[in-house]
Write a protein that binds this DNA or RNA. Sequence first.
DNA 1: GATGAATGAGGCTTCATTCAT
DNA 2: GATGAATGAAGCCTCATTCAT
Lengths: 235, 235, 235, 235
Amino acid sequence: MSKTNQSTEKQRTEEQGTEEQGTKKQRTRGPSPAAKKKPQVSPSPERRRELLGIAAEVFAEQGYNATTVRKIADAAGMLAGSLYYHFDSKESMLEEILRTFLAELWDGYDTVLQAGLDPRETLEALVTESFREIDRHRAAVAIYQKESRHLVAQERFQYLSDSQQRFEKAWLTTLERGVAEGVFRDDLDVRLAYRFVRDTVWVAASWYRPGGGHSPEEIARQYLSMVLDGISVRT
Amino acid sequence: MSKTNQSTEKQRTEEQGTEEQGTKKQRTRGPSPAAKKKPQVSPSPERRRELLGIAAEVFAEQGYNATTVRKIADAAGMLAGSLYYHFDSKESMLEEILRTFLAELWDGYDTVLQAGLDPRETLEALVTESFREIDRHRAAVAIYQKESRHLVAQERFQYLSDSQQRFEKAWLTTLERGVAEGVFRDDLDVRLAYRFVRDTVWVAASWYRPGGGHSPEEIARQYLSMVLDGISVRT
Amino acid sequence: MSKTNQSTEKQRTEEQGTEEQGTKKQRTRGPSPAAKKKPQVSPSPERRRELLGIAAEVFAEQGYNATTVRKIADAAGMLAGSLYYHFDSKESMLEEILRTFLAELWDGYDTVLQAGLDPRETLEALVTESFREIDRHRAAVAIYQKESRHLVAQERFQYLSDSQQRFEKAWLTTLERGVAEGVFRDDLDVRLAYRFVRDTVWVAASWYRPGGGHSPEEIARQYLSMVLDGISVRT
Amino acid sequence: MSKTNQSTEKQRTEEQGTEEQGTKKQRTRGPSPAAKKKPQVSPSPERRRELLGIAAEVFAEQGYNATTVRKIADAAGMLAGSLYYHFDSKESMLEEILRTFLAELWDGYDTVLQAGLDPRETLEALVTESFREIDRHRAAVAIYQKESRHLVAQERFQYLSDSQQRFEKAWLTTLERGVAEGVFRDDLDVRLAYRFVRDTVWVAASWYRPGGGHSPEEIARQYLSMVLDGISVRT
DNA sequence: GATGAATGAGGCTTCATTCAT
DNA sequence: GATGAATGAAGCCTCATTCAT
């Protein structure tokens, strides 16, 4: 009995943690400091990226809401539950897809914006860069177009509004500079022109298919030609 | 058209409120061919139209999938089940909203197309008419933009593809005629130009709010100016 | 048409909510001010009570975690999903069961505590009242015993700790008064005695079956006899 | 033993983190009679005991159902799957924890019961022994208290009812002998007195923390004093 | 015309368990 | 002895829809 005594003596001090709880879910609350259970970043980043690519395709094709995790899993050749080894939730997949996309997008934009170009060059470079991003991240762009409006209200997708604001500022500044320097027409409603250019470019993601005859640069050139000079014959 | 105009006039102001977003599936069921027991058109057509207006706002705001029948019923001040006195299903509401919208849209377009205008006038008239439709049927347009891609696959929404084809034909013809007649640039990729104009106009439904400073005609004028002459200063 | 107009006029003010969101769940957060979707108090309170009674039995029998909503629904003769017409969640059933129980418990206790009894009478009355509550709310008491420790950490169950504190204070005060007035032994560790009495009484819920030979008052009398005078023969 | 000792020394600091609580089902499966492929007793019995100690703490803290295999593995610094090298199943861990505990408990009890003590001495010795077991096997006792009711229904946990019966018999016999010999009051409902003593003692496991001011012997002395002589002043 | 209550199917998520490496 | 990845079953919950009143 003394023997037993000793061995149990030990466990006594094994800290078990404190009186936390939660009779149920708790996710959807942003990255709570501790108490994580799921990977989030741990498992093989390659598989993760691969799965996100698949998920992005399905989201883009069917819309986020209409996409069931089962459809994603099917597309990935696994069972629905297995996705949860890699991701916290369907929503966190969406989040990561969009965040990754925006990060890369801003890489490109920042390079352009810091290049010291004049307004017209800047506009051309931004449009071209946008079509390149559509080419590279078609699915993410399509998702962004369809879902961002709904998502911005969630804390978790805060970065969407942040990005939108930076985006707007970059474009407005460019357009205003162009007007001031006399390269863009001064009878334009700049905000309207901003929306015009912005939407016109990004909506292209809804019909663009990579490898479909036009390179992104070609499309950009044609769009720029229309946006800058119009479709009517110069008289 | 004036009559139509009045009745839609009303819905314009029905505030819908939130920008919510659910996360639910889509029960894409076969078109359940025959054997209906519920009205379909019987009860008061006014109430019907009223309810469809409400539904359209909610669909537009939240997306079709994310809109629960309950939300529509809430907005209409009734219980979810009660809607089924008026409509066969959630989907049939959607169907009727879009069908009604497209019918009115084509009323306008056909008038324009049969007016014997030259290509540039036709383009101007179509764009103006489009902005008027956005003004009148903002919700339906937004729904159309978001959902039509998914819906075309269903027999029940056959008329969507029909409309799309007529639409494309009308525009392409107009653009081609314009090129042939030397009023539009002949270095255009006509299909690309078609998409450019189409997207440029309809995407406006995503930000346009009736009564927001610009009349549809004003917006049309500005857009036409950009589309036809570009945003850069003529040199 | 004016009629139609009016009727829509009304709905306009039926608040549709604000910029809420949530691509998914959000419950489990205590009664968020607005944005409720589910009844919570609306539907027939009788059915509600009935279902809660059934749920309480199952929770008590199997433990909260081991109880599936399907089991509750089975016991109630309905389908699992149907429970959600009446309740927000499984957890909210638990919450309501315990809250209702504690409310009634404190009704009884407060009556006793405000009756101006001396310490011994108070102790006797509290114990008797406790056995009456066990008789009346056996299931709730059993649930309370098993689950409260886990639950206290959740905001939603805040009232459990509140109750525990009041409970402890009432008992400690009574015991201390008794010691001070010379009716309880002064060689007692009062906190230990408190736990002794408290647990001893409430654990009885684990074996007590109403209508099983002993009335709550009889059991109370016997327990009091043991607690007050011990089981050994007075010498 | 010194080796075992060291190795457990380590885990002591492996923080377990939160005290979370899930809401998951119990897969009460038939006892899966034969056809085992996994060890059962093969690998290092020390590691086994170590892991069982950790598991017991988690079970005790969170409840068996609410404890996921992952939580145990986390506490042990390994992955969930790895536990299956050591144990057949989560349930078999539980089973072994309880079986081990009961074996040791009966070691102690049998020593007392065979010591030829008189009823009062027997009662005192049993109570004291019980508090010692609580001290030594706090986690197992807590698990036993919470889970045994559900488990007795399973063949695999047959030994629980066996133990309960022996336990009841030992106590009833002791009490009856005491009454017969005039050391215990003869106006007691013996079964009620049995439950009283039993509950009174074991419930202490719910609040007792080793090393918390009172030694098990002290607590036993106080409890015995209350149980035997009551808390009221002898008049 | 509407309500209240329910159904049933399906969705997201969890988790014990397995197994190749 | 352990890891990483997956499986499959089950759990909670939602929602379009039905129907008696």
